[in-house]
């Protein structure tokens, strides 16, 4: 009970934030929410199930291009395209998982990284369809979701918030379900799980697909809400970012990705005003986190004071 109240309260606080924050920050918040959905997807596979992927950019891009291509080339309306984006992310995750899950640990990291790199290069190579490096800008009429105009700040925020809320509640329900326990079992002890009659490969594949759906929806939403899809979203950097958000906020916590995405977004936003080498912050944050706070903010909080935090 306490748990659901906390998460509803967070959602209400976000509603409030939109009402009181100046437009610049409210707008940032929309981006943060969409990125947080991506990070939640990453957290499902990494934080709960221990699958350290370096290739989630591929799943984000699958959603982004899945939706963007349908809207741009086939004239599909935005809402079905958003759903298609989620499916594309899930399907891509399934495909990658079928191969990559034959490996584990360091090999899994490298294999996912390489598959993502293949995706990134393919987007550049087929630039006739994908727009390659330059990307594709979506026009106003292509960005109407249920009559809401995504070129306007306020409706865009509401759509972002609704998506985030759905993702958050689904994830909360997921981690508290029986399946949520299976996710932890994959992280904690695969051999034991096998000897309890569980099929680790199948379970991990399902986890990756769910993670892919989250990532794909986030990618699709990013394209539709902010009107642009480009090859850079498939680059390694977009595999590292969700990992960073999750590590910062707390791997294996429901609210960690939101917290991490918010903090990191503003940290990068702040430093990029000062220097062109703002990515150094990302690098330094990674090193500092693995060294001194591998559990992240909420993970540490849970360990010390709030053992009930999901």
């Amino acid at each position: 009970m306490k748990i659901w109240i906390l998460h509803i309260a967070v959602l209400l606080a976000l509603v409030l934030a939109q009402l009181v924050l100046p437009p610049y920050h409210a707008n940032n918040l929309s981006r943060i929410l969409v990125l947080a959905v991506f990070a939640m997807g990453y957290n499902i596979s990494f934080g709960y199930a221990g699958l350290l992927s370096l290739g989630h950019a591929l799943l984000f891009a699958a959603g982004m291009y899945g939706a963007g291509m349908l809207v741009h080339h086939a004239g599909m309306p935005a809402l079905p395209a958003l759903i298609a984006g989620g499916l594309a992310g899930g399907a891509m995750a399934g495909l990658v998982g079928l191969l990559a899950l034959r490996t584990a640990g360091v090999s899994f990291m490298i294999v996912t990284l390489m598959f993502a790199q293949v995706g990134f290069l393919s987007i550049l190579y087929f630039n006739g369809v994908t727009g390659g490096d330059e990307g594709i800008a979506l026009t106003g009429p292509q960005r109407q979701i249920l009559g809401l105009d995504m070129t306007q700040d306020t409706p865009r925020f509401w759509v972002a918030l609704i998506l985030f809320a759905i993702a958050l509640l689904v994830k909360l329900a997921l981690v508290q379900s029986r399946f949520g326990r299976l996710m932890l079992a994959m992280r904690e002890n695969e051999e034991r799980s096998r000897m309890l009659g569980l099929n680790p490969f199948g379970i991990k594949l399902k986890i990756l697909v769910i993670s892919g759906v989250f990532s794909g929806v986030a990618g699709a939403a990013y394209a539709l809400l902010f009107g642009y899809l480009g090859g850079s979203f498939a680059s390694v950097q977009y595999s590292i970012l969700p990992m960073l958000y999750v590590l910062l906020g707390g791997a294996g916590t429901v609210l960690g990705p939101l917290l991490g995405a918010g903090l990191m977004f503003y940290l990068v936003d702040f430093t990029s005003g000062l220097t062109s080498a703002y990515l150094m912050v990302v690098g330094a944050a990674l090193v500092v986190l693995v060294l001194f706070a591998p559990k992240g903010i909420l993970g540490t909080l849970r360990e010390r004071w709030l053992p009930w935090l999901p």
Partner: peptide, 25 residues
């Protein structure tokens, strides 16, 4: 069913969750 010679449990899960995993499996 097999219990390991070298203890193999889910160290960071509660006792309940450990056994629940077996039951739900």
């Amino acid at each position: 069913a097999y219990t390991f010679q070298i203890t193999s449990i889910y160290p960071r899960l509660s006792v309940f969750d450990n056994v629940a995993l077996a039951a739900q499996a």
